[in-house]
Design a protein around this nucleic acid. Structure first.
Lengths: 337, 337
DNA sequence: CTTGGCACTCATAGACTGGGAGTGCCAAGC
DNA sequence: GCTTGGCACTCCCAGTCTATGAGTGCCAAG
């Protein structure tokens, strides 16, 4: 359907357009890239590419720019992921190396990714459901209130207030705490609901209401906080690009946790990169943006996702390289801690 | 120096310019506001106001717009803080009412403030130094690593990894935890350094290195994390306003924790509003923005600050009202928990 | 199938224009 | 002496027009 030369021309169009941000014409194309054919030939091919929907022209008598479909073909067939330079690798190591706790890892990662790609970076905290319990803590904070603290094996710490209505003796709190940890230590969060099912029966009758309250908050937390924790950075990079009217929509979308989550998409094989281009993105206001995302995690299992958001006119090979590299590093760091 | 009429004219100019975003001329002014004088008189007064630096014209034969100095006078002498409408008060209550833990209070607050003012809102977490210890937890997380968790009376939870190098027996950890809590429970963080000074002497010799490591991390945390935790929301509102070139700078500034902190300024009397207008702001890239900030806290003592960032052309009375009201509510909520 | 030629399209930039909003100044009036 | 109407002046803005040039589509020849 499309011979090699047409594909080469499409690739050249994408590359030129991405780097110059200007519609690319047949003459410039024939010159800059050693295609060995005349501009007229290029024009003929371009007419075919346009007919098939891979490129389009902003107005008659302008050069061509790739369509979403064109970018898609480029990403799938015409390009290879660009490995990071040695300097970039070093930057990742030094930048992420010094981070100890999870908050720091995540916040450094998101800033790093934004800087590497010169785009908006998005990082999701490790999903609760796919982590396991390292420790549970109960601390009385006020009359009738306990603070429930969850610590996961990924270093994520979640806190929730439990309204117990009644005050619990220090002993009872300690006992409940011990019981919770005995039940749950080392368990994956997926097993938690089952593991705690009979727990209320194992506390003294007078403490039972409190135990039930604590458990219900615990279970709630697993649902509500499972994936919701997401951060982004690099919004300033949006102001560089070709956004003008769309900017507001994009900024708005970025502040919605739910939208961000959808943006990164479903967690899959951490080794696989997901690329969603332009209108492939169903989300409101993000029709002219592309997303490059990957899962990250320990030993081959995806804990959560991270990625980058930018204009469709994006350096896909470079961005994909950066996202993949950062995802791998983060996985290593989490595994090492 | 400036008689009442000139002041009234300045006020009218500020109000009109803020609401229309267009330079205001003498004729429109004389008509819209019942000044009882002719446009010519207004012109004379405007010439004086301009000479004194309160207003300026973008170009000859355009109307006048306020200068920073003009806004300053307006804020200090010509306007009163506008109380919120009943609907707005209700919005605050319902929006902040359902929040339990501190993270939720803060994140809701910042979104609420952004929405109320249609500007960028910034909220600082309660400063550690001005809080006191509610509980300290030590959890072994890996070989040679402890997780130190601080819980403050404001509900703030801080975590840090401690590299202990050696593994500690569960007993020793428990003992150290108990000792820490005995020393520190209820103490203000300002007293912590003194209170723990002799703590290493009170643990068994073999655990002493670990105790020292834990303490040094604890003290470090108090310094490093004291005020650094700051969030913002409503960046999308920037795209509405008259930013065009400056937008990038502002977005960049917002992503720098340090800049955000400086932005909110020194904590003062929580009842006092700080307004910094345009170039009064020394921060890079924020010369044409204004900041309205206030301290918030429990029982009259400021724990931290929150505020709003927007164009100098801002509805100061309304913004000040919203900031003050939100600050008070947040204080109440923190006190009540 | 490729190529050079050629007419055609159309965005862009620059020059020019008229209209209008707004000013500053001045002389007359209260 | 402050206020006011009149008036000339400035200068932005929007519209029109034009020349330019990049780029295209088509065609006929190689």
């Amino acid at each position: 359907m499309l011979d090699d030369r047409k594909l080469a021309i499409l690739r050249a169009i994408v590359e030129d357009y991405v780097s110059t941000n200007e519609p690319v014409g047949s003459k410039a194309l024939a010159e800059r890239h050693a295609l060995g054919v005349s501009p007229a030939t290029v024009r003929n091919d371009m007419a075919v590419l346009e007919e098939q929907g891979y490129i389009t022209q902003p107005h008659t008598s302008a050069g061509r720019i790739p369509t979403d479909k064109g970018y898609r073909l480029f990403v799938d067939k015409l390009s290879t992921i660009k490995p990071l330079s040695a300097a970039e690798r070093r930057a990742i190591e030094t930048f992420l190396g010094g981070a100890y706790d999870l908050d720091e890892v995540v916040s450094r990662t998101v800033r790093l990714l934004a800087q590497l790609t010169r785009q908006v970076a998005v990082v999701q905290y490790p999903s609760l459901i796919r982590s396991s319990v390292r420790h549970i803590e109960l601390v009385p904070v006020a009359a009738g209130r306990l603070l429930l603290i969850l610590i996961t094996d990924t270093g994520r710490v979640e806190q929730r207030v439990v309204e117990t209505l009644v005050d619990l003796a220090e002993d009872s709190v300690a006992q409940l705490r011990a019981l919770l940890n005995a039940c749950l230590d080392g368990r994956s969060f997926g097993e938690v609901p089952l593991a705690v099912a009979d727990l209320p029966d194992r506390v003294p009758a007078e403490d039972r209401p409190v135990a039930v309250a604590v458990l219900s908050v615990l279970l709630e937390t697993l649902v509500e906080r499972n994936e919701e924790k997401i951060v982004f950075a690099g919004a300033a990079n949006l102001a560089l690009g070709d956004f003008s009217k769309g900017l507001r929509d994009v900024l708005e979308a970025l502040e919605e946790q739910v939208v961000l989550m959808r943006l990164l998409g479903e967690a899959g094989d951490p080794a696989t990169l997901t690329v969603r281009i332009g209108a492939e993105n169903q989300l409101q206001g993000l029709h002219s943006t592309s997303v490059v995302a990957a899962g990250y995690g320990m030993d081959g299992q995806a804990l959560a996702r991270l990625g980058v958001l930018g204009p469709t006119r994006m350096d896909y090979p470079g961005t994909m390289g950066a996202v993949r590299a950062v995802a791998r590093y983060v996985g290593q760091i989490l595994a090492g801690s």
